[in-house]
């Protein structure tokens, strides 16, 4: 019997503590231990990008990260991207405006990935947007709306829309 380990992780700004098996992935920790089911799990081997979250602000595949590895770190999921109370952030609103989602399965990973991009680079080119989402598969939209939404959100954020 393998001993569980105590971890404490800041998730969307709140400190969460839990006893976890070392083999528990961060994706399953978020979904099953914390009931944060906004993070989606598509492939469980690092290919689809649906499970992308931010660890200390950096995008990471939560299916290829064990919960024990984020002990003491800060994790942001789709639930933590908006301004709170169920409101939408600038990037999320742009997704709505540009029909950047259909089934929505890829959307949490797209939003976390693009949030990191826009933090690093407030004025990305279309090529840079396309390159950064090569790690996120979308089987519905054909990506055009996602790219348009990211560029639109970048412009609005630069122009100071909160």
């Amino acid at each position: 019997m393998i001993a569980k380990r105590n971890i404490s992780v800041e998730v969307n700004g709140a400190l969460r503590q839990a006893e976890v098996e070392p083999r528990l992935t961060l994706a399953d920790f978020l979904r099953h231990t914390l009931d944060l089911t906004g993070t989606h799990v598509g492939c469980e081997h690092g290919v689809c990008g649906a499970c992308t979250v931010l660890v200390d602000g950096r995008s990471a595949r939560s299916c290829l990260t064990f919960a024990v590895q984020v002990d003491g770190r800060a994790v942001t999921t789709i639930e933590g991207l908006g301004p709170g109370a169920g409101g939408l952030g600038v990037l999320q609103e742009a997704f709505q405006r540009h029909h950047a989602l259909q089934c929505g399965f890829c959307t949490p990973g797209m939003l976390t990935t693009l949030t990191e991009l826009l933090n690093d680079n407030p004025d990305p080119t279309e090529d840079e947007v396309r390159e950064v989402i090569t790690g996120n598969l979308c089987r519905c939209t054909g990506y055009a709306g996602i790219v348009a939404a990211a560029l639109d959100a970048a412009r609005r954020l630069r122009e100071g829309e909160a």
């Binding site: 950096r58 995008s59 990471a60 290829l64 990935t113 950064v132 790690g135």
Partner: peptide, 9 residues
């Protein structure tokens, strides 16, 4: 090498 998310880790 991979993608932004995998290069981060």
């Amino acid at each position: 090498v991979g993608h932004r998310q995998t290069r981060n880790r």
